[in-house]
Every structure is written in structure tokens, then in C-alpha cells.
């Protein structure tokens, strides 16, 4: 289980996050939503240990990540998989080499066994026969799938996804969202997704936190997000005219 307690973070003079406390539900899709620039990516990088918070604690199963030493941190990191906003595949490696990379680095198994695991993961994300392609030869959606395969290849307990459907068409977005949801349930992973896409939220979000200008403005589930009377959240959820009219009609 992951719990954030009173997280604050500044870059120089600029306050990015202030006093954020959140508890994520194990085995569920937890979404962090907010406008661009609200601090979602920074929050996620804090959680996975790419930045350290100025204040507050990040607890994995009750252990504060911030106070762990280097070896303990790398133990926690082995339980984490992450899908990056632009996939962050290694350009110089093929699809297969990308996905096998964490295994070759950390798994004591033979190359043949690792390769089996890689093919299993690639198949699971709906990619076969792409093993020898380079990232530059893939579409945006395929890159995300490879990113997901690489993130789950070491059987993580936690899956972090930073804007998994940015830059994808609506149809591909839904497919990627559904894939993440299925994987979360199949392998009982605690998934945390950054998003500004209300479609995804309604599609796959189990628990939702709304970040506004670096602080947590609201927290709840799908059912309550549409009926909330929180002004700021309402503006975010019903950002388009279409949705506003839809809401007003149904009232």
C-alpha cells in the first residue's frame, strides 16, 4: 500500500506541491487528475523516488521511502513499474531488447527464460511479431504497449502511468486504458495514473484525486465526481460546452 503524508515540493523559489496527503487503494486504479502544469508529473516522480520531497513522507507498506538507505530503496524500486508520458523506450534498442532490459539487468534466470517472459508480456499487451522493430518504427499506441510490457516484465506490485493516453487518438486511448485496467485486476497491481482526460476517469478510475495548482482539491470516486458541488472540480470535469449542456439538460 502507498500513502502520501503532507508532501511539499519546491523547485528553487517556485512552489510546485503543497501539503498533499493521499492514500491509494491496493489492487485498484487510482487516478490523479488535474490541468496541465498542476504538478501531477512532479508528484508521480516523487512517489517513485526520482525527486525527493522537501517535506512529508511517502510510505510503501508503512515504510517511509524518503528515510530508506540506498539498498532498501532499490528493493522498493524493484516492485515499481512505470509507463512514461512519451513511453521513454530506449531508442537504440529493439522492442524485444527494451522489454528484456530489466530482466537481463536483474533476473538471475537464463536468457531463454527471460525471452519467454518477454514474449508473454508482449503478447499480453497485444504485440506479437514486433520484437525486432525499433521504437522509431512504432506508432504512438504501440510504443505505449511496449512501455507497459517493459513496466510489468518484472512483476511489479505498483504500476505508475504518467498520462498514458497523451498523444493518442480517442479509440487507441480507450484500448490502452482498458489494457491498464485489465492488467491491474489480473495481477492485483496497485495502479496510479496521472491524467487530464475525463474519458479515462469515467472509463477506468476506481479512486480519483483532483490536484489544483499543487494542492489536493478533491478526492472521491466516479459516482460522486459528476455530482460534486466543488466549484473548481466542476470547471475541470465540465470543461467543454458539450458536457456542460449535457449536464444542464439532465438536471
Amino acid at each position: 500500500m502507498i500513502e502520501l503524508k503532507n508532501i511539499s515540493k519546491s523547485f528553487g523559489e517556485k512552489k510546485i506541491l503543497e501539503d498533499i496527503s493521499l492514500r491509494f487503494q491496493p489492487g485498484k486504479v487510482n487516478m490523479i487528475i488535474g490541468a496541465s502544469g498542476s504538478g501531477k508529473s512532479v508528484l508521480m516522480k516523487l512517489m517513485v523516488g526520482l525527486h525527493l520531497p522537501d517535506k512529508g513522507s511517502i510510505e510503501y507498506d508503512g515504510q517511509d521511502y524518503v528515510s530508506l538507505d540506498r539498498n532498501q530503496r532499490s528493493e522498493v524500486r524493484k516492485q515499481i513499474g512505470m509507463l512514461f508520458q512519451n513511453s521513454a523506450l530506449f531508442d537504440s534498442l529493439t522492442v524485444e531488447q527494451n522489454v528484456i532490459f530489466p530482466l537481463s539487468m536483474f533476473s538471475p534466470d537464463s536468457h531463454a527464460d527471460n525471452l519467454k517472459r518477454v514474449n508473454f508480456c508482449l503478447e499480453r499487451v497485444g504485440l506479437s511479431n514486433t520484437n525486432k522493430l525499433y521504437p522509431a518504427e512504432l506508432s504512438g499506441g504501440m510504443k505505449k504497449r511496449v512501455g507497459i510490457a517493459r513496466a510489468i516484465v518484472l512483476n511489479p506490485k505498483y504500476l505508475f502511468c504518467d498520462e498514458p493516453n497523451s498523444g493518442l487518438d480517442p479509440l487507441t486511448s480507450i484500448l490502452i486504458d482498458e489494457l491498464i485496467k485489465e492488467i491491474t485486476q489480473e495481477y492485483d497491481i496497485t495502479t496510479i495514473i496521472n491524467s487530464h482526460d475525463m474519458n479515462s476517469v469515467m472509463e477506468i478510475g476506481d479512486q480519483i484525486a483532483y490536484i489544483y495548482k499543487g494542492h489536493k482539491e478533491w478526492e472521491g470516486d466516479k459516482a460522486t465526481i459528476l455530482t460534486t458541488d466543488n466549484q473548481l472540480l466542476n470547471e475541470f470535469v465540465f470543461a467543454t460546452n458539450f458536457l456542460r449542456q449535457f449536464r444542464d439538460k439532465s438536471r
Partner: peptide
């Protein structure tokens, strides 16, 4: 530099490399 700005370095760090 490209690996840095496209988050490939972050990806390495997260893997524990």
C-alpha cells in the same frame, strides 16, 4: 541529452539501474 529529455534516464533509474 536526448535520453535525458525523453525520460529514458528516468526509466533507467526507476528500474533501479
Amino acid at each position: 541529452g536526448t535520453m535525458r529529455v525523453t525520460e529514458q534516464i528516468d526509466a533507467l533509474e526507476i528500474m533501479g539501474v
